[in-house]
Amino acid sequence: MNELELQTIAEITIRTLWVCGCALLLALAIGIPIGIVLGSKRFLGRSIAVSTVNAGMGAPPVVVGLGCYILFARSGLFGGVGLIYSLTGMIIAQTLIAVPLVIGITLAAVGSLDDEWNLQVRTLGIGRVWRLWLLVREIRMGLLAAVIAALGGILSEVGASQMVGGNLDGKTRVLTTAIMMKTSQGQWEQAAGLAIVLMGLTLLVAGVLTVIQQSGRTR
């Protein structure tokens, strides 16, 4: 592979990491608090909220992408904002894909705690913020699982990135859309090269998180 191609692959990889990283952080920032609230509080409409989250966890990225496309397109509700075919639009779409995963897994992690967990900590007279800190510490393995699932989901997702990002060269092209493109162009060697990078990235991410998880478990 010549230098130009390597440079292109590097550029696409960095862009992919940027988009997925931003989407992941946003999804965690939004999803974890919602997951904790849904997991530990009882309120009217909670079961509706939980089933919505479960449905969202199974929502195909392509459908999310289509929804974003319809909203972001020139004729859409947010047409004037200029989100279509932009990195910001892609980050929003990927965040929407990842948020239900983060909420769902956080919810399950909170749910796996003893029913009385929150009461037990409350009866120690610990302040709200510290209780939250203890809770996050307690479910950190679940949160790691959420990170893995969310990152795996958006790193490998192609539908929404293609629809919202448009695979524009030098602007919104990411690994998955580039692989699809190279495949449809018959440039299978390049597609394979990009696929190896993507595989490597997912394996690396999963590997690093697994190592953290393992070391956390023995502690």
Binding site: Y85, G166, N167, L168, D169, S184
Partner: peptide, 8 residues
């Protein structure tokens, strides 16, 4: 403004 989609 010269965009390349690489797409159909």
């Amino acid at each position: 403004g010269f965009e390349r989609t690489g797409s159909g």
